[in-house]
Design a protein around this nucleic acid. Structure first.
Lengths: 122, 122
DNA sequence: TAATATGCTACACTTAGTGCAGGGCAAGTC
DNA sequence: GACTTGCCCTGCACTAAGTGTAGCATATTA
């Protein structure tokens, strides 16, 4: 009961496009998974967990290239834990900055709306 | 004293790439600006203000295509104020959602870091 | 037996730019 | 006068991170 999900089921479970999964595989973010007798990909719970985390990292703004580097570290083992920690910390910092930028833009939109609500044209 | 800035000065003022400005012009987000006798673009304070707002809208995640539609409405005049208000309101909503997504991802990163700090490999 | 659903690969296309090649023009300098 | 530097021009190629499509295979279901 290890490899149980087709790519379609996997994509649905994670909330990601089938093409994106294949794309990540091509880019090396993902080991080439097992195939059934018809050459169809099969995903285990473990694969799905990792894909889920890929989605999470992408949502934080980490690039595919960076995720790949991170994945290489994961594969190397526990010795890379400090470096991985640093990578995630960096990403956390970038994410905080992005949120801050978005918040500033929110204020700008609110100011614009205020003017529009007062009937001003600009 | 109306057209005073070269494209380089303008880009610096706004904090945007020269190529991006030309790109926006090509896409119709911007009227083709005045040129000097050597065919170099010249930007007025008004142009710079609008470019600044383009940058702001882009930072909220509004697409170039949508900004173009918005610009068409601006050009049409005061009669489009309700529609423009709706567009900005929609964008505000999307932006709030994006901020929320980022915040959720921040929590995920923090959880990951917590595990890493405890020496766990995953 | 035929229609429907799902999967495969390979390739083209998209968005929002960035970077580069090849050239023009003006100012400063040797 | 020639040369270098610095800005600008156009047009084209390239990038990231996918998405969409064509053409094909296989499996289930009516």
């Amino acid at each position: 009961m290890e490899f149980i999900f087709t790519i379609g089921q996997t994509a649905k479970k994670i909330g990601i496009n089938i093409g994106a999964i294949r794309f990540y595989e091509r880019k090396g973010l993902l080991e080439a998974v097992e195939r059934d007798e018809n050459n169809n990909r099969l995903y285990s719970d473990y694969d799905i967990g990792w894909l889920h985390f890929i989605k999470c990292l992408r949502a934080t703004g980490m690039s595919v290239e960076e995720i790949k580097s991170y994945y290489e570290l994961v594969k190397t083992g526990i010795s890379t834990l400090p470096e991985r920690t640093r990578l995630i910390e960096d990403q956390r910092k970038k994410l905080l900055e992005e949120i801050e930028v978005k918040r500033v833009q929110l204020v700008h939109l609110d100011e614009k709306l205020e003017r529009y609500y007062r009937g001003e044209n600009y």
